[in-house]
Design a binder for these strands. Structure first.
Lengths: 158, 158
DNA sequence: TATTGTTATACTCTATAACTATA
DNA sequence: TATAGTTATAGAGTATAACAATA
């Protein structure tokens, strides 16, 4: 098993350790890296999983809707869908009413792949949050979700 | 002011919304992007700030110690320090006892720059956490810190 | 003229490995 | 031979802008 990149020491200055932004940034990278390793064997990278998860919920979506739902750049979506389509996990079908639109759907294989990926995601999640008590995990999820959906007064449109 | 990249819609499937790893990953990117915009005018990028913050705490550190403290790859550190040194914020002095080692220190200008950057970091932090009550912000910081220092049983060495 | 999707390009962060110089 | 730092290279994620087809 690979050792992974270096881990910050315990000697970080209080300034960083008290900075939620810094911690979010570091933990976000850790989460993505671990999840990426967990699903690499499935031929998926983290951004793919988000797409599959959204598609698993709904029957079909236009690419623009998919991009909007996940906050992904539409230009980036193209390549990600190309890869999923080449793996046979997704199909793009032209919309009869508006031929600019492509309805994106999971294939049967796509549905199966999501199921496996879900289990790996759950395992990674358990590892990430192993140091917290169950109630703390829920509290953390609740707080993160509040931040994630927040339409903000900040510097950019997020 | 720039609008920034797309924001995920509120229609994310529960699967993602309940996944702390996914939320951490997204929020970590948001935090880094905003902070990066906030300090770009200072000629700094996010990784620079961590270095300056650590150096502000101690008098001098070898590059290997700096890399270890922040969990940064030593090879990556070189370029970051090059940039800081060219900006006159940092100096590398050969260690008399072991000439392989370089003692890295903040310059006076470096100290001043950290002070300004700190204020911007605080402003970004306030914006990021604007949706939470003060007690919730503390709770979030506490939980994130617990995760960050966690030596884990997970898949990699982190 | 606006919108959907596509293509091309570039930038940042990160990781890996080979190399130099000291020890 | 091992360690500190350097260099070169590569890969992933993301953003921007110009473009084609369709509306």
């Amino acid at each position: 098993m690979d050792e992974g990149p270096p881990e910050p020491g315990t000697k970080l200055p209080a300034e960083l350790v008290e900075n939620a932004g810094y911690l979010l940034s570091r933990l976000g990278l850790r989460a993505r890296r671990r999840f990426g390793e967990a699903i690499a064997g499935l031929g998926l990278r983290p951004p793919h999983f988000g797409l599959l998860a959204v598609l698993a919920d709904r029957d079909a979506l236009a690419q623009s809707e998919l991009a909007e739902a996940l906050g992904i750049d539409p230009g980036r979506l193209v390549g990600l869908l190309d890869e999923l389509e080449q793996s046979g996990l997704v199909v793009r079908a032209p919309d009869a009413e508006d031929r600019r639109r492509h309805a994106v759907k999971l294939t049967r294989a796509g549905r199966d792949r999501v199921r496996v990926a879900r289990r790996r995601a759950a395992a990674v999640e358990a590892g990430l949050l192993a140091g917290l008590a169950p109630a703390e995990r829920d509290e953390l999820r609740r707080l993160l979700l509040r931040l994630a959906v927040q339409r903000e007064s900040g510097a950019d449109g997020q």
